[in-house]
């Protein structure tokens, strides 16, 4: 084992780590916000929207993330330059970067998996609580904002650890569309130093640490949040 390359590449691994964390954060944030309406319409209707949401989750969960990512980056991305006027628009600088496509693909994936969980969570809130909220005169929107959504989110909190870890483990795919996060930097090292095992082991160790931090952090948070008591 020869680790003499490490000091030279360490700053780049730092940049890669920051990119990984950004990917993870934005994907979960956007994905979770999309998951809430996707779960909700499947419980409340209207029917066509419920079917649409159902179809979306089926497609997302039935196809590999790599194909979704490539479809969005190479497929959708190749359609943009042919659109008239798009090169002059304020969006163009972002559309040329690979990072937004990666965030979009991962967000949609999170939305698909977590939307399915939100559906169960919305359905799992006891009917009596919603009836009580309506009985004291809340409007439907107030019921959602004050009772239904907080109670559903509370039930999905334990699944969030898993979602974070799954998304973290998906972020290396971004390296295939030139977003050089931790794994991507590892590939650069492999190409430049002709070493195989050391960079890969180092990358694996970084991910192992990140997963450990996520697990411990969420365990700490979960202990602080008051547990739901079931009667």
């Amino acid at each position: 084992m020869d680790w003499s390359w490490l000091p030279e590449y360490l700053p780049r691994f730092g940049e890669g780590l920051w990119l990984t964390i950004q990917l993870l954060f934005w994907s979960i944030l956007i994905g979770m916000s999309l998951a809430i309406p996707i779960g909700l319409v499947q419980v409340t209707g209207p029917r066509p929207l419920a079917w649409l949401a159902r179809g979306f989750t089926t497609v997302i969960r039935g196809t590999p993330l790599l194909i979704q990512l490539w479809l969005i980056y190479y497929g959708v991305g190749s359609l943009f330059p042919s659109m008239p006027g798009i090169r002059d628009s304020f969006l163009w600088p972002y559309l040329r970067e690979a990072f937004p496509y990666a965030v979009l693909a991962f967000s949609l994936s999170v939305a698909g998996y977590e939307g399915e969980i939100m559906r169960g969570a919305f359905r799992g809130v006891p009917k009596g609580e919603l009836e009580a909220a309506r009985a004291v005169g809340m409007t439907p929107f107030q019921v959602l904002r004050r009772v239904w959504l907080p109670r559903a989110l509370q039930n999905t909190f334990p699944t969030l650890t898993g979602e974070f870890i799954l998304t973290l483990k998906a972020t290396p795919l971004a390296a295939t569309i030139t977003v050089f996060e931790v794994y991507g930097i590892g590939s650069i090292v492999r190409q430049e130093t002709y070493k195989i095992y050391e960079p890969l082991l180092f990358v694996a160790a970084i991910y192992l640490c990140l997963t450990g931090v996520l697990v411990l952090g969420f365990r700490y948070l979960e202990n602080r949040i008051p547990k739901q008591t079931r009667s």
Binding site: T171, P172, L173, Y183, Y197, L200, Y207
Partner: peptide, 10 residues
Amino acid sequence: AVPELVLILL
């Protein structure tokens, strides 16, 4: 805990 892509290569 480690991404599948890294494992596959290793």
